[in-house]
Every structure is written in C-alpha cells, then in structure tokens.
Design a protein around this nucleic acid. Structure first.
Lengths: 207, 207
DNA sequence: TAAAAACAGTGACATATGCTACTTTACAGC
DNA sequence: GCTGTAAAGTAGCATATGTCACTGTTTTTA
C-alpha cells in the first residue's frame, strides 16, 4: 500500500485523505543522477521521497551550489512543498542514488489543502524543514571557511550514503560548494594532514 | 477595522475567519530597534506587518548577518509563519523603523489552520516568500564578492526606506553582511570611485 | 594492451578579505 | 565656536581563495 508510509509518519491523517492519496498518487523509481525537477520548470506534482536521496541545488552566474539534500529518514516525510504558486522553481533536484518517489498530482494537492487540514500540516512541516536546512547552508557559507564547509559537506554526504567511504570526485565537491577543483584538492590535503579524511585512490574516507 | 488590511489583500478569506481575526488579534506599535522576537525564544503570536519594516537576522559563532527584511508592501502580507513547531526560533527580528504589527495568538492560528483552508494558503504564501528571500541571500553570499553584496544591500535598504539617502554607519552594514567595518570602508571607496554611491558626511547616497 | 579520457596534484601568482593599530573627520551637546 | 565621542579612513600585513599552466595518475574503452 502506497500510503502506508504516510500513515506511519502521520497517524492523524484523515482516512478519506489516505484513500484519496492511494487513488491519485503514483510511485516512480528513479535511477541515480536522474532529474526530479530542473530550475525554471514548473512543478506538476509534489514528490515525496519514499527511499533514496535527492540533491537540491541552485545556480547563479554559471556557479552551481548545493542547497541541501532531501532524504527519506527519521523525520519521515521529505518533499518539496515549495512553489505552490505558479512560478517556475528556483532550484534543480536530482537523485543521488536509486530512489523511489511518490508523486502527488499538484491539482489534487491543491484540493487536499482545502479539504484536509492535516494535509496542510504536512506541507507546513516540510516547508519548515527546508527553511531550516537552507538556513544551515547559509550559515555555513557566511561563517566558515572552505575547510569547515568541506568537512561538514563530507560528513553529511557520508551520513546520507550510510558509508564513510565516498565515491566522489573533487570536481563534484567543488560544484556543490561553489568553488574550483584545485581548491578542493588543496583543502583536502589539509584535512588529510589533520587526520579528518583520507584520500584512497579516487575515493574519500571520512574519519 | 483591524482586518480590513487582510481583506484587501485576500478577498477570498472566509467572513467568519475575518471576524475571528478581528476578535482575537491585537495591534501593537513598535519603536525603531525594538525586538519582535529574539533567537532562541518561543514564538507566541504570529505577527503581520501592517506598516514599517522588520530586519530578520541570525547569528553563528558571534557573527551576525542579515537574512532578509519583512516589510509591508505590494505583496501585502509579510509575516513569519516559520516555527509552527514548538522549537525556539533560529533568528531574531527587530524593527528597522516605527512599525505597526498585528499579532495573532498562536493557539488561535493553530485552530484557524484546521478550520479555514484559506488561512493555510496565507501561511504557505508567506513561507514561500521567506524561502525565496533566504535563497536570494544565500546566492548573494556564495556567488558575489563584497562589492556586489554591498551594492545589493544598499539598494534594498534604500528601497525599504523609500529614500536613497541612508543614515547608516559602516559598522551596522558590516554587521549585516557578516564582515568588519574597515572592509566596508574600503569597499565603499571602490563603489564611490565607480559612481555607484556617495559618502556624504555620515550618510550614504545610493546613486 | 595501448591510447584516450578523466581525475588528482602542484607551484606560482593575483586578489579579496580579515585584522591590527593608528590617524583623521564629523557631529552633538555644551 | 569648542570639545568629546563616535564614526570613518588608512597603511600594512596575513591568510584564504581563485586561477593558470602544467604534470602525474588512474580508469575507461577502443
């Protein structure tokens, strides 16, 4: 049952809402590096991450940078409720690993918001989470140097992948942090010296 | 009538909701530099800016930085719907100028969210706006140098104050941008040379 | 397996920003 | 106008980061 996930997380959902979700939502499997939405597009469905992990990033002046990840996890529902207005989204979202998403058609979502108060609660909760994550990213950028941001990034990444051996290139890290490859190589060496990470061939071990 | 403001902005509000808002909300005048909420506190009412302007900032490691302003204006309602969970807020909000706020008691807000779908719409709309503003700030910090951020800051400030002659010290700017006074002085000189601003005594003219 | 492609490492240099210590200027209150 | 205080300006230096040009290494693939 598709919506059992929802019921587990939100025991207070109206039964009728659950059955509507059952009826109208679809479940879709995504390969790694598959776009869920691209910056500038219009969202037509509200995706909920059943499992896997999505990277949300934005772009400005050809510089790309990570905003946060959306994963299934302890807090249960992670999605992006953003953009209930009719403007194009201001970020891109791409799967990091194989993921399963439940897609709720936006016109239904709009109806549910009016009809079921508990649904609004879910959406608000979700917004809350993303706001908080974005604030965390902002704080990181303003208050810490690359060394601090890099170690934070690697630790978060290790947590998401449930592994402290990361298969990721310096270039990819650079893109996420909005800097250049050489700089990452340089800072990585610092972290290596401090025994915080270890570069093993082309993989990175977070210590 | 307190809620006429709301009705102007949201013609579709349920009449009953409007009268409840009339009954339960209070209107309060704030002097400049008066706190609306401090980081770490719990929000007990949802404030809506009737007129004036509020600066929202956060702090990390003793560094303070501007997140965005909340003003009354074209988009009508600006508030902070954040934190409908029971956690303390992660930011401070302080009036920039004399301001008038309508305060909606949080327990009522929770009821209204369940009872009136249009109220959830207002709150979501508000969340949307703040998310967007925060994203703008994040982009600024990641992608532009201080020169770019400073001119953006001054222009925004001029817009909010409806005057291009700003009565603001370099120290205050530095605090908002998370840097130090000397750096602002230095970058201001650059902007002066480029005819983008003019330092007139202790005021700054945005050209 | 050899060649190509992708990735990592490095040194040198330019620039932006942070910081210290100090001087000069503007302004409010007398 | 004088004066004390707060703000602005400045010089010099340290460090972080951006960038270029190049080398070395690993992985892919033809």
């Amino acid at each position: 049952m598709k919506a059992s996930f929802l019921v587990d997380c939100f025991p207070n959902l109206e039964k009728e809402l659950v059955s509507e979700i059952e009826r109208y939502s679809t479940v879709k499997n995504f390969e790694p590096k598959e776009y869920v939405v691209k910056e500038g597009e219009f969202i037509r469905s509200l995706p909920i991450v059943l499992n896997g992990s999505i990277r949300v990033y934005s772009t400005e002046d050809a510089v790309q940078f990570l905003l946060y990840y959306i994963s299934s996890g302890a807090s249960c529902i992670y999605s992006f409720a953003h953009t209930f207005n009719s403007e194009p989204v201001e970020f891109s979202a791409i799967t990091e690993v194989k993921s399963t998403l439940m897609l709720l058609p936006l016109e239904r979502v709009r109806l549910w918001l009016k009809k079921y108060p508990s649904f609004a609660g879910i959406v608000l909760n979700d917004y809350q989470k993303h706001y908080k994550d974005l604030l965390h990213t902002t704080k990181q950028v303003i208050c810490y140097n690359l060394e601090g941001r890099l170690i934070d990034y690697l630790k978060t990444k290790a947590e998401i992948e449930q592994s402290n051996l990361l298969n990721i290139s310096h270039q990819e890290i650079a893109d996420n942090l909005g800097t250049s490859r050489e700089v990452i190589t340089r800072v990585m060496k610092k972290l290596s010296n401090n025994q915080e990470v270890q570069q093993i061939g082309r993989k990175i071990k977070v210590l």
